[in-house]
Design a protein around this nucleic acid. Structure first.
Lengths: 343, 343
DNA sequence: AACTCCTACGTCAACGTTGACGTAACCGGC
DNA sequence: GCCGGTTACGTCAACGTTGACGTAGGAGTT
């Protein structure tokens, strides 16, 4: 209520007094429930307007039997990451259309923080949560789910049962990317991945292995670099790969920031037109780089929409069996992935 | 609470019954208030844990005299825009450290939507709001502010009084950018701006005019293109500029998406190494483009921190006069802005 | 005319929590 | 043994709203 005024918020009681009706009648009018005459309805509306009455959803949800707060929690790793931000936006859009608002938080892929945020959301009695699970164990998530909180995981599936999730074709699309590179003649294809505690990293790595196998290539362990959290670390790893006696002629970078780091180093070494790159996850301006970056693009709006649909349905009491929705990703050839090896 | 269990949430009453104390004692223990003995405290804690008790912040805030919901609203234009997303993240971080969560929404620069979202936030009794005002009139914002809701505007100042805001050095930095281009010998410097209803666009345009004047250049009206909302429109406008009989040798692009559109067209016309560009707002990968893009970079974390500090202080009852904080932006020379005109 | 039914209200208690206030037990000092 | 003070509880009402239920009056039916 703050510095200006310090007035008490008008309540239904105040409206009732002004309109000379009972508080219950005000409740009926405000909620468009039957049982209020036309003339009384007008009087109540006028009184509410003149007092600047605003319904109190917290009091209402406390008392109502359904207990809805019309609010969901969204916990992603980092809301400033373009992927997370786009996903949040998609979820928010669909939620808003159902009158549901979004409490958003960044978990930093940290269990403790994720747990604290879950508790904070729970204290505010959100109707459900959409979570990008922090890597490693999911104890706090599982506990929250088992309390009955509707939950949808995005990007990464649960390690426990009974919970919906929405992911993309991590493994299949990774395999396809590697086969694409192999088809151009690349035999030394490196894998640069995010922290290997992340399910997506593991899946993409598995896809990489499958791709190599299917192409009849043998894995060179020293071409695999994981645990690359952020652009800086990815740069270092890329530099190290290029310093090998037999450096890779193509890179499969399994996360957007890793792709950026790799491109940056290739650029500084003037190898960007000679070493092929396919990245997982599209990112803004990938098409404007030199060369434009070939990526596996997730359908972010599609994932967000699906996640929103699922959580809203569960909140509405949908008790059908849990769903693992897989939204297909697509290879977007732009140039960097179409560079053939120097023979 | 959803499909699994359908159990009733345990309340303080349940905990009290199990611990064989009064409900008020449970309240004291849960809130770490004095007046509970050591043995009783242990019993209550044990009971709460065994029942899986979770405090109900909505009930608590309804009853408490301070009425805090420990939640603020954040309404930005588009949460998937990198600038907005980074700002949200900065605000969220600082709020969380004070135990405050963030209800986030995108206004799409639409008054109606902004008004609806404000009402939704108000119904949930948020403690305050941080808003990127939609262009044009600010009636709904002003009304909300006058009700006493603590409010901080970011990126754009209020058209009404008594309200804090945080902006950047739009005009000064724009002038500096134009002077930079002029110093290189550019005499035909175009201005490409976002919708001119936006205060930031106007300020940046004013800075552009000041820069021209200070450099002794005359304004060529046909080199000014505004109302460019989004990358596509910016592309069209850039193409039109380049098709002039006497096209500009330098572009000042006054918003990040506009910069992207301009770079894209310069690239397709192979003019990217001949036409200079300075953009307002940094964006991811600006340093990786060819040429790397010289930009005016806002201190986004600084803006977010300041906004969070202000709103939290106001919520805490700070009644000092309203502040217009200006967080300085910096010119980041990377290459595109250092291209001299062909003589 | 007595009846049922419906509409348009009103009254009351309860949602989960906490502020205000009450009280019994105990402590120290004289 | 009495007083004033403190500690550790408990009781009660209230925050703003709504579900359950009550009731008065009118319309329709028999």
């Amino acid at each position: 209520m703050g510095q200006a005024g310090e007035r008490r918020e008008p309540t239904m009681r105040d409206v009732a007094a002004l309109a000379k009706v009972s508080i219950k009648t005000v409740s009926r009018v405000i909620n468009d429930l039957p049982g209020a005459g036309a003339e009384v309805t007008d009087r109540v509306r006028a009184a509410a307007r003149s007092l600047g009455y605003r319904p109190n959803l917290t009091a209402s949800s406390l008392r109502r039997s359904d207990r809805r707060s019309a609010t969901i929690g969204v916990l992603f790793e980092d809301l400033s990451n373009p992927f997370d931000a786009a996903l949040l936006r998609a979820v928010e859009d669909h939620a808003r259309r159902s009158g549901v608002l979004v409490l958003a938080g960044s978990t930093e892929d940290d269990h403790t923080l994720q747990r604290e945020l879950l508790l904070s959301l729970s204290a505010r009695r959100v109707d459900g949560v959409v979570v990008m699970a922090a890597g490693g164990h999911q104890d706090a998530l599982q506990h929250e789910r088992e309390r009955g909180t509707p939950m949808v995981l995005v990007d990464r599936p649960p390690t426990f049962g009974g919970t919906d999730c929405v992911t993309t074709t991590n493994r299949d699309s990774s395999r396809a990317a590697v086969l694409e590179l192999a088809a151009l003649g690349h035999r030394d294809i490196a894998f640069l991945g995010d922290r290997s505690t992340l399910w997506t990293s593991q899946e993409r790595y598995t896809g990489y292995l499958e791709g190599l196998a299917q192409a009849g290539l043998t894995l060179r362990e020293e071409l695999v670099r994981t645990g690359l959290h952020g652009v800086d670390v990815a740069e270092t790893a890329t530099a190290a790969l290029l310093d090998l006696d037999r450096p890779p002629t193509a890179l499969f970078t399994a996360q957007n920031l890793v792709t950026v780091g790799a491109m940056r180093i290739l650029r500084t070494r003037d190898l960007h037109r000679r070493v092929a790159v396919i990245g997982f996850d599209d990112f803004p301006l990938a098409d404007l780089l030199d060369p434009a970056v070939t990526v596996v693009r997730q359908d972010v709006p599609g994932i967000g929409r699906k996640a929103a649909e699922l959580i809203l349905a569960r909140i509405d009491g949908d008790t059908s069996p849990p769903v693992h929705a897989v939204v297909p990703a697509a290879l977007v050839p732009r140039g960097s992935g179409e560079i053939a090896p120097l023979s």
